[in-house]
Design a protein around this nucleic acid. Structure first.
Lengths: 227, 227
DNA sequence: TGACGGCAATAGTATTACTTTCAAAAATGA
DNA sequence: TCATTTTTGAAAGTAATACTATTGCCGTCA
């Protein structure tokens, strides 16, 4: 198996967690713990207990828990970006590429054996439930200057690039792309917690839900840009 | 001037703030303070200092600051709902009604003299910056059971009702409506803080920005539902 | 051997969200 | 108008949290 890892913005961490045993345990167990407790109830103390280390040791890898959330979501966006590359690089037709990208974004997430210490299924749940908290803060402008949103930005621009190839005259490719990325995850949140805000149904099984989601998003994109 | 007020879910407060002097001061100054400090840095202690009252007194009106945010956002959604009613009740054509509703949602917000102790311009900024925090919590399921999202739900269903009149066969009216309501506010956030995610430009003046926003949303809705 | 990086352990700080208690003030109502 | 009830203010207290600071140990590598 190829030994791959994403280059994430070094501002996201104090010390790169990918290169040490403790760092990898921090990533792995923080995903499990945030998924289990929710981000608010998650603390570095609880994480340290879980990995049988000390609170101060976690702070040597991440400045605070907010930056750790940044790191995890950035990793997720990079992962989607990478999977879109794989799914689209053999396709030459613009519409097919856009369609393939939407499929990667809306498909149910399964574990990716290429990344050992990341549970992608749990991480996807975290992104659905907590992602907006990366930017709904008073630090958003500073965080953006430091490039902490590079992963999301980059994915967004990949999508808007695809959109503009299919429909060069469309004026709102970035807005549509960001709306689509957010809506995809928000609709999954609504489906579970606020079902009146979505048309997908809880009772349907996962694959049916995601099929409906894909249809909703695909129709919205292709009709909006005029195809 | 007509003395009107919205009936909000009584679970939103401990004691109805609309009926007492202290309650009205809490509403007025909490809007100003949250707008100024952001929701995280806003505390009942600071609010009490501002209105020259006591922290415990504020707790007699709202169980906690999270419920106060619920109250303010619910008020905002009710306000939009009410203004959509006014803007559409003379229109009989479905497309025109939908268009008018979108205009109310995307138009710049100005102060509404019908509501004395609410600064709608500041409240709109709060909704743009903090709204998602009403449901991105571990209490979301309980809050939903208690009907705390009734205001947003109701607005969403009004919009999806309009959508279904224009296009009865469209299957995702609720999802499209919720996506539109969120996207409208999120794009305004991006425009200010993460401009790479939107196509509206900071340098444009307010009315141009909102004109672009309206065009973006209107195109998205009408093309998606097939008109 | 010894300098150094990495880690554990402990204690400590400032802030926050919220509660409790009690007395004073204001509104109410007979 | 006077007694009663309700509402408010003031002050203190509690538990949890996010984060910091310090110290000293252990293993590695020059």
């Amino acid at each position: 198996m190829a030994d791959i890892s994403f280059r994430v913005n070094s501002k996201l961490f104090v010390r790169d967690p990918q290169h040490t045993d403790l760092g990898q345990r921090i990533i792995k167990h923080s995903i499990d713990l945030i998924d289990k407790l929710g981000f608010e109830d998650f603390t570095f103390r609880k994480l340290a207990d879980q990995i049988e280390s000390a609170e101060a040791s976690v702070y040597r890898y991440f400045e605070n828990k907010h930056r750790l959330l940044h790191y995890l979501t950035a990793w997720y966006w990079n992962w989607l970006n990478y999977r879109i590359d794989i799914a689209t690089n053999s396709l030459s037709d613009g519409s097919l590429r856009l369609k393939a990208a939407i499929k990667v974004i809306t498909d149910p997430k399964i574990e990716d054996p290429r990344f050992e210490f990341v549970n992608e299924v749990a991480l996807h749940r975290i992104v659905v439930a907590e992602m907006e908290k990366t930017y709904l803060t008073k630090w958003v402008d500073n965080d953006n200057e430091e490039g902490l949103f590079w992963g999301f930005n980059s994915l967004c621009h990949k999508l808007s690039g695809f959109i503009n190839i299919v429909s060069p005259g469309y004026s709102f490719a970035n807005s549509l792309a960001s709306t689509v990325l957010l809506a995809t995850h928000q609709q999954l949140f609504f489906l579970i917690h606020l079902p009146g805000l979505s048309d997908m149904k809880k009772k349907d099984d996962l694959s049916v839900q995601h099929q409906q989601l894909q249809t909703f998003i695909e129709e919205m994109v292709f009709r909006t840009i005029g195809c």
